[in-house]
Write a protein that binds this DNA or RNA. Structure first.
Lengths: 153, 153
DNA sequence: TCGATCTTTCACGTGCACGTCAATGTCCGG
DNA sequence: CCGGACATTGACGTGCACGTGAAAGATCGA
């Protein structure tokens, strides 16, 4: 199951991430996952980093409701940053690189705004739900009061 | 357009809420909206309260990623509470009522847990994105430093 | 080497949340 | 009372995010 070193094939990967094999192949099709390395026979191999990314995607989708297209944008921004980081030390034209960095910064800021907005909405919802709980509790107390009224003992 | 008193028909309602007419009919089909009153000819009439509910649903779906099924559950819980509130003063069997209230409380608590979990996830994401911004900024400073190196003036 | 258990690539199916006609009916200003 | 705008109910279509076989090949333990 474990191939020495943390590489696993699709069955294990899917089980550990809590998704199906179909989902992993689909994400690869959408280029959300780098095509994953393969063994000689063509079986996919997933690294621990791949596993982390899969779980990251799952969180973004299941608990936050981002579409796979949005997630792809986010991941691409991150990948681009990592690549730029490694390219930076080969001296090259500076101005285009600077422009790209600025662009990455914009994308990140946009995502930050989206996330903050969602958090704000959730905060409002929380207050709303708490209000409902309080009101139900008030009604429960009212019912409790009637009980001691009608069945005093 | 305005029918005296805030009632509007489906075109206006859809426009104001930022959804389509199809969406409103679909929500009605799913019983997310009380069938709304109708005029003699059968045209739907939406009250300001209906409008508010539509926007509430839109927020839950678009910006928070809840499914319409989940939203229906939330709304039903709220409607049930409102109804119970008005029924409470007609003296009636107390124990079943108490059970219902407890059930409503459970639903609300479950929703609260879901919301808190989502907020926590968003908090993690925010930190993650901030980290990316910081790293991009570091790279930008690095590029800026090179500029003064190579083009000193 | 053989068989059981994966994994591969098509390819069609599905549930959700609507979109998009089409045919018909209603409302209202002139 | 009539024309044009707006509405009604079907019913089929669509995009997304997978589900579900089917047929074939790969891997591994006995």
């Amino acid at each position: 199951m474990e191939r020495a070193s943390g590489y696993v094939q699709i069955g294990e990967a899917a089980a550990r991430a809590g998704v199906t094999q179909r989902t992993l192949r689909y994400y690869e099709e959408l280029k959300l996952l780098s095509p994953a390395s393969r063994m000689e026979g063509g079986f996919r191999l997933y690294s621990p980093d791949d596993l982390e990314r899969i779980i990251y995607i799952k969180n973004l989708r299941d608990t936050l409701g981002f579409s796979l297209a949005e997630i792809k944008e986010m991941i691409e921004a991150e990948d681009a940053r990592n690549q730029l980081k490694h390219e930076l030390h080969q001296t090259d034209s500076l101005e285009p690189r600077r422009a790209r960095l600025q662009q990455l910064r914009e994308v990140a800021l946009r995502q930050m705004r989206i996330v903050n907005e969602k958090r704000q909405r959730l905060k409002e919802m929380r207050a709303h739900i708490q209000d409902r709980i309080d009101r139900v509790d008030a009604l429960l107390r009212e019912v409790a009061d009637r009980e001691v009224d009608t069945i005093p003992r």
